[in-house]
Design a protein around this nucleic acid. Structure first.
Length: 485
RNA sequence: GCGGAGUUAGUCCAGCCCGGCACGACGUCAGCUUCCCAAGCUGAAGGUCGCGGGUUCAAAUCCCGCACUCCGCACCA
């Protein structure tokens, strides 16, 4: 169960594969989901919707992927979502300006400093290219946003680098028209785009990727006034405390001051309960509080939710307390009013966000579900049944004697309700194994007895055990097996 | 973007030094056989040898450029 095995399974079984792969100019960092991948993703998204949007009575929106320049002037992405870089005139090597200066002179010039600051220090300290001793060109910024030109005049706009900006921009309308009341979560699933310098490892670092983001708007004076916290107070989380991972309940973490308030503790509790249901091994997870240097520019407190995979610790969710950074910025830039009434008092809400990487989560689900069952000479994806790309395979034991036709009858009865897959060809054991590899939890087999008494066998993926049931009971059987928790 | 290693069928790979019809396995499809766990037999399909250029009578093979993948650096959900 390492990265290469998952990659091979993904390619062979239609989970995901490189975009535009038949052309030589295909760029790195773009991947397609195949049929199995889409089916898994849809079910993952549905689970997310159940466990966050419905459970916590959030609103869900679907915003535009291209957003106007003003949005990113206000959000800070135009100035801050960029690295200061310098290039050598001679050998063309490129360096991070701030890192190189600190490395050579120990002078700390903040990443966000004015570009002339970098040029000044480089000139004063006579910094040259560490590779060829060449002199540097002027510092410039490499912005990680994709710029697009709108209309015939190519008016500047950008592909959003995070989905949440639409939520902030839409907040005033949503709060008014949807009868909002603090605290309120607004959620969105969609694509975001970042021009990574070096995308790598398929779904783990993409230039175009799916995020599931939740922005919780709250009254900053009432962060510990949250009745629903009792729902998760005994939920156990694993959290880094001074380089050790400690297991404790949300309440314990709150009481110990490791988590800052009930609101944050509540949503971290929801998060871990969600991931438990995805089949990811949460005993291999941790929340890690980020230091000031690691945090995004908009975050005042940040916890990363990380999971151990064969590629190392992988960040699946960024949990950022963004305070009023975004609403204040957009209010100032747009002149729109973002204050709302909470108990008759006007308040500018603060924001706590759960920013989930969907692609990375799907990869982790695959890796944590992958089982190399040598005893039975098979590869099994032990996915949670409700996430399986195929719910049930419908097989005829052999193709002749009318068994294929009977299997088709069974298939036609259930095909619109479940993800079912009909298969007649080849040895029965081979067909079971193919289903095991895409994680189908059930396999129904039509045999000679079926023709006599309308019963079929149902094979359970994980145990390989079988039981015989009536065709008329199949629907109820499948519902029970694949229903969401 | 840098350093290193790579790229040949759906997958894994041989061939490359030393230029001459692209090898094998797995998988897929069809038929036979078996009739509940990747058996066997017969047959078939599947290739811009990463892309572009050069050298040559002839290039997967030699030369140049580029792209992509993987590992490290840096960046990040």
């Amino acid at each position: 169960m390492n990265y290469d095995q998952i990659m091979q399974l993904a390619l062979e079984r239609g989970f995901y594969f490189p975009s535009c792969e038949i052309y030589a100019d295909a760029q790195a960092g773009f991947w397609e989901y195949g049929p199995s991948g889409v089916s898994l993703k849809n079910k993952f998204v549905e689970l997310w919707r159940r466990e966050f949007v419905r459970r916590d009575r959030m609103m869900e929106i679907d915003g535009s992927q291209i957003m106007s320049e003003a949005v990113f002037v206000a959000s800070g992405h135009l100035s801050s979502f960029a690295d200061p870089i310098i290039g050598c005139q001679k050998c063309k090597s490129i360096f991070r300006a701030d890192k190189l200066i600190t490395e050579i002179t120990s002078i700390v010039v903040p990443e966000s400093a004015d570009l002339t600051e970098f040029d000044k220090v480089i000139l004063e300290k006579n910094i040259v290219c560490p590779k060829c001793k060449g002199t540097f060109e002027k510092a410039h910024k490499f912005n990680m946003m994709f710029k697009v030109g709108i209309g015939p005049e190519s008016e500047p706009a950008y592909l959003r680098p995070e989905t949440c900006q639409s939520i902030f921009v839409d907040f005033p309308r949503l709060f008014k028209t949807m009868r909002g009341k603090l605290p309120i979560g607004i959620a969105q699933i969609g694509k975001s785009f970042r021009n990574e310098i070096s995308p790598r490892q398929s779904l783990l670092r993409l230039r175009e990727f799916y995020q599931a983001e939740i922005e919780v708007f709250c009254n900053p004076n009432k962060l510990d006034n949250l009745e629903k916290f009792s729902e998760v107070e005994n939920t156990e989380i694993r959290i880094m405390v001074e380089d050790d991972i400690k297991t404790m309940t949300c309440k314990q973490a709150l009481d110990a001051g490791i988590l800052p308030n009930k609101l944050v503790a509540y949503y971290l509790g929801l998060l871990i309960e969600f991931y438990q249901k995805t089949g990811i091994d949460v005993t291999k997870s941790r929340f890690r509080k980020l230091g000031d240097k690691e945090k995004a520019f908009y975050a005042s407190v940040a916890f990363d939710f990380e999971v151990e995979t064969t590629t190392g610790w992988l960040e699946l969710v960024a949990c950022n307390y963004r305070s009023d950074y975004d609403l204040t910025s957009h209010a100032n830039k747009s002149k729109e009013k973002f204050e709302v009434l909470d108990d008759e008092i006007k308040v500018l809400p603060h924001v706590f966000e759960l920013s989930m990487g969907i692609d990375r989560s799907l990869y982790t689900i695959l890796e944590h579900s992958f089982r190399d069952d040598k005893e039975n000479d098979r590869v099994v994806l032990s996915l949670k049944p409700y996430l399986a790309p195929i719910h049930v395979g419908i097989l005829s034991l052999v193709k002749k004697d009318g068994l294929a036709e009977k299997a088709e009858e069974v298939f036609f009865k259930i095909r619109t309700k479940y993800d079912a897959f009909l298969d007649h060809s080849g040895a029965i054991g081979r067909r079971y194994r193919r289903l095991d590899e895409v994680g189908a939890p059930l396999a129904v087999t039509v045999d000679h007895q079926t023709l006599q008494d309308d019963t079929i066998t149902v094979r359970i993926r994980d145990s390989m055990s079988q039981e015989r049931i009536k065709i008329s009971d199949l629907d109820a059987y499948i519902v029970k097996a694949i229903t969401y928790p």
